[in-house]
Amino acid sequence: MTTTCLCGAVSVTIDAKPAFINDCNCSLCRKTGGAWGYFAPASVTASGETATYSRADKSSPAVDIHSCTSCGTTTHWTRTEAFIAQYQTNDMVGVNMRLFDPEDLSGVEVRYPDGKSWTGGDSFGYRREAMAISETTRW
């Protein structure tokens, strides 16, 4: 499956639908417009010029957000070098699933984590029940 940013300068290809999509309400996800599918790094190919942003409000941010340098669309995130060094793993890439047509994501569960209230400790709660993308139920 391949998608592009709004202007088409950046493309992202994944090898399969995600197991689920997180539509989080934390400030990072809300302000970047991301609804994330998670993949092994080898399962994602991104091409085109992107600008990266790491959170300035965290002492050790875990992800670099990638956006198209032309249209500004948030396309994906990758683990930061600091995260990889600290945890000795590069375990996932997040792809902004809002860039794909909902028809292509039919059957994928959308989860709604309450990242705004999450303190970074244990598991986060959810602000509403999950739903599966279908022809009659879109997210």
Results as ranks from 00 to 15, higher is better:
residue 1 M to Q: 05
residue 4 T to A: 10
residue 5 C to M: 11
residue 6 L to C: 04
residue 6 L to P: 03
residue 8 G to S: 14
residue 9 A to P: 14
residue 10 V to F: 11
residue 11 S to G: 10
residue 11 S to C: 10
residue 11 S to P: 07
residue 11 S to W: 10
residue 12 V to W: 06
residue 13 T to Y: 11
residue 13 T to R: 15
residue 17 K to F: 00
residue 20 F to Q: 06
residue 21 I to A: 00
residue 21 I to E: 00
residue 23 D to S: 01
residue 23 D to C: 00
residue 24 C to Y: 03
residue 24 C to K: 04
residue 27 S to M: 11
residue 27 S to N: 11
residue 27 S to C: 12
residue 31 K to Y: 09
residue 31 K to V: 08
residue 31 K to F: 09
residue 33 G to Y: 04
residue 34 G to D: 05
residue 35 A to H: 01
residue 40 A to L: 14
residue 41 P to L: 09
residue 42 A to W: 10
residue 43 S to L: 09
residue 45 T to R: 15
residue 46 A to K: 13
residue 46 A to W: 09
residue 46 A to N: 11
residue 46 A to S: 11
residue 47 S to W: 13
residue 47 S to Q: 15
residue 48 G to P: 14
residue 50 T to P: 12
residue 51 A to L: 04
residue 51 A to N: 07
residue 54 S to W: 07
residue 54 S to R: 14
residue 55 R to A: 15
residue 56 A to K: 15
residue 56 A to H: 14
residue 56 A to L: 15
residue 56 A to R: 15
residue 58 K to H: 15
residue 60 S to M: 14
residue 60 S to A: 15
residue 63 V to Y: 07
residue 65 I to P: 07
residue 66 H to Q: 15
residue 67 S to G: 08
residue 68 C to M: 12
residue 69 T to I: 13
residue 72 G to L: 09
residue 72 G to R: 13
residue 74 T to F: 04
residue 75 T to Y: 08
residue 77 W to F: 13
residue 77 W to P: 05
residue 78 T to P: 11
residue 79 R to A: 08
residue 80 T to Q: 09
residue 85 A to F: 01
residue 85 A to E: 07
residue 89 T to N: 10
residue 89 T to K: 11
residue 91 D to T: 06
residue 93 V to D: 04
residue 94 G to Y: 01
residue 96 N to M: 01
residue 98 R to F: 03
residue 98 R to Q: 06
residue 98 R to D: 04
residue 98 R to H: 04
residue 99 L to Y: 01
residue 106 S to I: 06
residue 109 E to W: 02
residue 110 V to E: 00
residue 110 V to D: 01
residue 111 R to P: 03
residue 113 P to D: 00
residue 114 D to I: 03
residue 114 D to E: 07
residue 115 G to C: 05
residue 115 G to A: 04
residue 116 K to D: 07
residue 117 S to Y: 09
residue 118 W to C: 09
residue 119 T to I: 14
residue 119 T to L: 14
residue 121 G to D: 13
residue 130 A to M: 04
residue 131 M to N: 04
residue 132 A to S: 11
residue 133 I to P: 02
residue 134 S to R: 07
residue 135 E to V: 06
residue 135 E to K: 11
residue 135 E to S: 13
residue 137 T to C: 05
residue 138 R to M: 04
residue 139 W to M: 01
